[in-house]
Computed example of a mutant assay.
Amino acid sequence: MRHIRVIGIGAGDPDHLTLQAVKAIARTDVFLVLGKTGERQELVRLRHRMLEEHARPGHRVVEVPDAERDRTARGYPAAVEDWRRRRADVVERLLAEQVGPEETAAFLVWGDPSLYDSVIAVLDDVHARVDATAFTYEVIPGISSVSVLAARHRTTLTRVGRPVQITTGRRLAEGGLPDGVDDVVVMLDGDAAFAGIDPEGVEIHYGAYLGTDDEILVSGPLAETAERIRALRAEARARKGWIMDTYLLRR
């Protein structure tokens, strides 16, 4: 039986690898990479650096093009489901063609695989399609950008007796800060949605490229920092060609 590992590798610092992740990498035969069009070469190099340091001699790396998501589709949930189905097609072929009987394969997932990542859902889809004895899989948690954000700003995500909500830039842009929640973590924000909400009484703890040499940190009242963050964000995106950021909004 084939065995699959979904390994969280942290937000960008090689030292974010947990001991559990390091041991899992060392026990893996083949690493499966779903290559994205124009993927950031810094992240590709970082992944290979981790394998050079921790993978066993003779390990294999198999990279295939990832399924492309239609970002122009009008129905967002339907577009995501279609993308995941086509990703499952790719993964099913990978497991059948590149992972031998009794071998162990792994997907290296940025941050924590349980937080805004589709690999677990895709493997569940593939598992439902094939013989239940075709493979087993396990998930190795990782240090998420949310945890790194809080640590870098020396704060906690929750306050006494209060909840925290994790949402996306899309949802924040649609509805603003949710009622009854004073602490909101925002991820997957392509358009600086924080700049479009009422800043009165709101603080922001912002982080981009967390854990890397290019890390950007800004904290303070949203009314005073929003434009500065937008400018820093735009400059960094133009210089590097991509941006990954996370932030905490706090009433």
Rank of each mutant, 00 (worst) to 15 (best):
A105H: 01
G175N: 08
E63S: 12
W110K: 08
T136V: 04
R159Q: 13
R27V: 04
V6H: 07
R154V: 07
F107Q: 02
R71V: 05
L46Y: 05
A192Y: 03
A132C: 01
H59K: 08
D117G: 06
V184L: 02
V186S: 12
G10A: 06
V122M: 07
E53D: 05
D13T: 02
A96F: 01
D117T: 09
S145N: 06
G58P: 13
T225A: 14
S219G: 07
K23C: 03
A55R: 08
R154T: 10
T156E: 14
D13K: 04
W110C: 11
L34E: 01
V184E: 15
R239A: 15
D89Y: 00
R159F: 02
A150Y: 01
I140H: 14
R230N: 03
H205C: 04
I243K: 09
V184Q: 15
M1S: 11
R85Q: 15
A223K: 15
E42N: 07
A106I: 01
Q41C: 05
E97R: 12
E200C: 00
K36T: 01
E53Y: 00
R27H: 10
L95C: 09
L188H: 14
V146Y: 04
A78W: 07
E39S: 05
D82V: 11
R71H: 03
R152T: 00
I4D: 01
L149S: 12
V160P: 03
L115C: 03
A78D: 15
R56K: 09
V148K: 00
V139F: 07
V90Y: 01
